[in-house]
Each structure stands twice: as structure tokens, then as C-alpha cells.
Amino acid sequence: MRKGETKPPKSFTEATLLAAMEHASRFVDDKDPKEALDDDESHSGGIGTPATRAEVIEKLIQSEYVKLKGKQLRSILTGRSLITVVSPELRNVEYTARMEQNYRRSNVANGLR
């Protein structure tokens, strides 16, 4: 057995965070909500649209929840503190997927798609 140290995951860059938001379904196990996030008809896949994803990142930086260190996005105390007070459900991508699934079902039921 080899003794070693664990390393934290790599920090997101704007590009890798955008990609994670675009392909958020990778983080969802339940089939139906996963498909709702992958539905290109409703919003180009993932969480939000390409424009709103970039806008969210800019707002995180402007609101000083994260800062750029080189190309890496680094959380700062304000951002980490916000995460501790937000409901765990709201921090879960599966919750977002279920919301998208319900939105999609509602539109179908109302003849909007």
C-alpha cells in the first residue's frame, strides 16, 4: 500500500464551469429529470441558456462570491457562507432537473410545446 496525500478537486475556470452547467445531467441519476436537462428544445441543454449561464458566472464574480485567481474561479468567504445557509435541496442539481421536468410537463399539458 502506498501512502499519499489526498488532493482537493481542481478549481473551476469559467470555461469548465460553463461546461458543467451545460452538461449538468451528468450529475443526475434519475432518468426522467436527467432527460429534462438534456432536452435541447427547451433551453439548449443543461442549466439555463448559454447566455444566462455566462451571466450567472459574471454575477457570482461581481457579487464577490467567487474571485478569479488567474483563470481559476475561487470561492471566497462570502460565497462559502452563502452555501451554508442555502437549503441543501437548492444546492442539488437533481432539484433543478426535477424543476425542469415539471416545467416541461406543464408546457406540454398547456399545449405550449
Rank of each mutant, 00 (worst) to 15 (best):
K10H: 12
S11L: 14
S11F: 08
S11K: 12
S11T: 09
F12W: 13
F12R: 04
F12V: 06
F12Y: 13
F12D: 10
T13E: 04
T13A: 10
E14P: 07
E14A: 10
A15C: 10
A15L: 12
A15H: 14
A15M: 10
T16D: 04
L17S: 03
L17K: 07
L18D: 09
A19C: 11
A19Q: 10
A19T: 10
A19D: 09
A19R: 09
A20G: 05
A20E: 07
A20W: 01
M21A: 03
E22W: 06
E22D: 12
A24T: 01
A24I: 02
A24V: 03
S25T: 07
S25L: 08
S25Q: 10
R26D: 13
R26C: 13
R26N: 11
R26G: 13
F27W: 06
F27C: 08
V28Q: 01
D29E: 15
D29H: 15
D29R: 15
D29N: 15
D32E: 14
D32H: 08
P33H: 06
P33I: 01
P33D: 01
K34F: 00
K34L: 06
E35R: 04
E35S: 06
E35P: 03
A36E: 01
L37K: 00
L37G: 02
L37W: 01
D38N: 11
D38C: 08
D38L: 10
D38H: 07
D39H: 06
D39L: 04
D40E: 09
D40H: 13
D40C: 09
E41M: 08
E41T: 08
E41K: 11
S42H: 07
H43G: 12
H43I: 04
H43C: 07
S44P: 02
G45A: 07
G45L: 02
G45C: 07
G45W: 01
